[in-house]
Amino acid sequence: MHKPETKTAGFGWLIGFALLAILLIVLPHLLSFSQQEILVMLVIDVLLVCSYRLLTLTGEWSLAHAVIMGVGAYASALAAKELAVPVPLAMLVGASVSAFLAFLLSFPLFRMKGFYFLIGSFAAGEVIRLMWKWSDLTFLFGGPKGIKRIPSMPDLFGIDFFEPVNYYYLCLIVVAVSLLILYRVERSRIGLTFHAIHWQDKLAESVGVNTFRYRMLAFVISAFFAGLAGALYAHYVGAVAPNRFDVEEMVYILIWAIVGGTATFYGPIIGVVTLTIINEVILRALGVDEMRPMLYGALLIVSILFLPDGLESLVPKTKAWLASRKERRENMRTEEVPAE
């Protein structure tokens, strides 16, 4: 499934990354204020969808990811607001609570596989979400209205994080580090074991891999970063509510992952970036942003029908097409030589 990667990144890659970094740093200054806010959300969504992909490596598709993001958001918000934990620390608390919850949920949920896991994770997520809404727990979670006036990121080194641009840079650094960790995990022995469990779980078990523990590990890591994304969201927006993390949000995560493709690390990122651009730039320009669900639905259907491996599968296809064109041109040249 996976070509062995070359150990050292080539020179071309370095230039590519440098250009990307420059683009990401310059980008917010080219945008309007509202577009900067969208950009912050986009960066958070990238982390969300990439953390989701880590779990899909083991072959399990969860429907609890949006709620787990919410757990991070709620935990971080409560820690900062009620317990006066400094915000950066509260974010780590939020992420850790998400991870711990995933650890607990592993015991019932990983008794299931495939479709049953899908439904089981959905049920578990809904139970948590309903707890937030439940009137008997309003004193803690604020009921359907959620938690408001969450402390925002304090000024650090004289940088005001209330400004979207500055918060964007903060998110960019956090997300870049997180993605690097996720990438390293996937390339490590652990990540290879995830792949093994996906494709051959019985075989993996027979050579002594504890599939339950590896599934749990994937779930916990993925939950940690989803929780971190939730915490970044909570302290930026300043409010969380149960409906922000409902099945609709989960559907969007699924759509980003599926439209982008999950076989490569960059697939989901392509998905979320492309769809956000289509949604925020094109629909907004046409003044029809209430059509967002329909557009997402239509794109999902089109992609599952005609591009089941996602947008990412266009990359090797384009490469192959370019190569074949080049080859053909060279063949033509060599054929032309004797004629001359």
Binding site: V251, I255, P293, M294, Y296, G297, A298, L300, I301, I304
Partner: peptide, 17 residues
Amino acid sequence: LIASIGFLLILQTVAMM
């Protein structure tokens, strides 16, 4: 399953509009 999620979103938007 995935296609029906897409269809769901379309029906919802049609009703909304």
